[in-house]
């Protein structure tokens, strides 16, 4: 059980915690936070994969992937939060109304 495996395991744990929270929590901010946790979990896993041989230099490709991943999750989070604010301003609720309900077209 060398060091990178530990990091991979924590990554995986973070991912699971993230997914659990993402699904269970209804409050949108918590959801977006959960999404970030999941993201960081995956990125941790990627970084752990990059450096599995103790001595050698780390493999740059996963690092690049992580970098791109981070940028993407940042943009998603930002857009999500902006959308959340707009929904909150319009509907006064911070959770998603039941889909079948919302489709009944009452734009409150």
């Amino acid at each position: 059980m060398n060091q990178p495996t530990w990091y991979a395991l924590t990554g995986v744990i973070l991912f699971s915690m993230g997914i659990h929270a993402f699904v269970i929590r209804t409050h949108l901010v918590r959801r977006i936070l959960a999404f970030n946790i999941m993201g960081s979990g995956v990125f941790l896993l990627l970084v752990a994969i990059a450096h599995r041989i103790p001595g050698a230099a780390p493999d740059p490709v996963p690092h690049a992937l992580v970098l791109t991943g981070i940028v993407v999750s940042v943009s998603f989070t930002a857009f999500g939060l902006v959308l959340l604010k707009k929904i909150y301003a319009k509907t006064g609720k911070t959770a998603l109304i039941d889909p079948t309900e919302s489709t009944s077209d009452q734009t409150n």
Binding site: N2, T5, A8, L9, V12, I13, F15, S16, I19, L45, I49, A50, R52, I53, A56, A57, P58, D59, P60, V61, P62
Partner: peptide
């Protein structure tokens, strides 16, 4: 269960692969 699966996969990953380095 998912966590268990991921655990199993992580432990099962090839330890010494240098990747595209």
């Amino acid at each position: 269960l998912l966590l268990g699966l991921l655990f199993w996969t992580v432990l099962d990953l090839p330890p010494q692969s240098a990747g595209l380095h």
